[in-house]
Design a protein around this nucleic acid. Sequence first.
DNA 1: CCTGTAGAGATCGTATACAATCTCTGCCCC
DNA 2: GGGGCAGAGATTGTATACGATCTCTACAGG
Lengths: 235, 235
Amino acid sequence: MTDGTTGLPEAADRSSEIAEAIVGAIVEQRLAPGTRLGEDDLGTTFGVSRTIVRAALRMLARDQIVTMRPHRGATVASPTVTEARQVFHARRVVEAALIRDAAKSCKPADVRALRGHIAAEGEALARGDRSAAIRLSGDFHMRIAQLSRQDVLTGFLRELISRSALVIALYGTTRASSCGTQEHEALLEAIARHDADTAVALMTAHLEHVEHDLDLARGKGTSLDLATALVGRRS
Amino acid sequence: MTDGTTGLPEAADRSSEIAEAIVGAIVEQRLAPGTRLGEDDLGTTFGVSRTIVRAALRMLARDQIVTMRPHRGATVASPTVTEARQVFHARRVVEAALIRDAAKSCKPADVRALRGHIAAEGEALARGDRSAAIRLSGDFHMRIAQLSRQDVLTGFLRELISRSALVIALYGTTRASSCGTQEHEALLEAIARHDADTAVALMTAHLEHVEHDLDLARGKGTSLDLATALVGRRS
DNA sequence: CCTGTAGAGATCGTATACAATCTCTGCCCC
DNA sequence: GGGGCAGAGATTGTATACGATCTCTACAGG
């Protein structure tokens, strides 16, 4: 059940694998909202038939990460402003609960691992690797969630983080598009002290900061080339 | 966005329709956990090919309502005791947030509609229609959620309610398997008074009651439950 | 120059075919 | 009599075929 390495993507079969690849491309901002996801294109890109691609797309559609319209194909979802607000509202609710449990049960080894993670975040930011920075930032939230041992809520968070990436791609300002590392550090320190109330307050504030840094008035609909965007993800 | 009639099942296409039908059967306890869901059987039942059935099953698998194992087909999921607890934990988190928002924004017309709904619940209980009672009980929670106008969290709740039905089917005691109507009434009154704090407290207590009425003491770990062994052939 | 429409091409929706894998029955051997 | 093995039957995984629907371009009319 748990994947010891990163804890993130378990790909049971080929279509789940493709779904994960698409999610990864979205999280790393290589696939912009509104990008058309043609079934034949994806099939040739991944070397499978449309049957597999459709299964992957259907799963992503269930998670609201892609939009499927009858006879018109699938596109990367473009959350509206309302949806964007609801996604962050949901994150505050879910992550507040998760970090409360995480603060109770986290161990020194967990804290050490997370410190390393934050260091990697800072490194990515320092060398201007925007894709890695965004992915690592999301991973940090997922790692916190996994400390809680609440797999159901953690599963919800996974979906919310993917959708957050879409929101940030659409409404993010250039500077603040990834969480500040110092806020993550503060979060971690509160957890390390088992100070649940502070951790919850910090998380709520953190998510509010990210949301407030969004510009909920414009939209950019530019698309990236599909095949190049999906080339060689994974590490 | 909102479906005026019941607000529940929008079936975009054939496979979503079939997925909804399966969920409905699970919620009404006509499909027990562990039941085998053969693709050909479902296909002939619904008059479609396996292609459609597989799409439906894959969506349900994404929601953890069915389990798909490679080359072994799909079965109705059998939540473990741990999963059962996590589902109810998640419901407390999600529904507390939802009912808080619902209490703030609900209107007299909403209250009236919900009173009618509770009456229907009582009626179903009175005539011993267990299936209808369970379905209506879940619908009540969904209706409350919809008042909050938080579609993302409401979507999570939909999944949680389906999984709760599985939990109740597996671990439910005979007597208390559906929510008491008077607790729903108290919930509604608090909402009608816009008393958010009371509504949250009542909802939390309500969900704790339902969970405590389960028999979650047996099998603590990885052991399989009796019901599964009886229904799905497992040796 | 703009707007509306017809046809060709592209894309989606579903069914079906075939190979790979699993399950179950019956038989052999101990 | 019990346990293990082999083959037949059943079921799943994937690809492909074909009809239905949409999109885009070219052209006629205003």
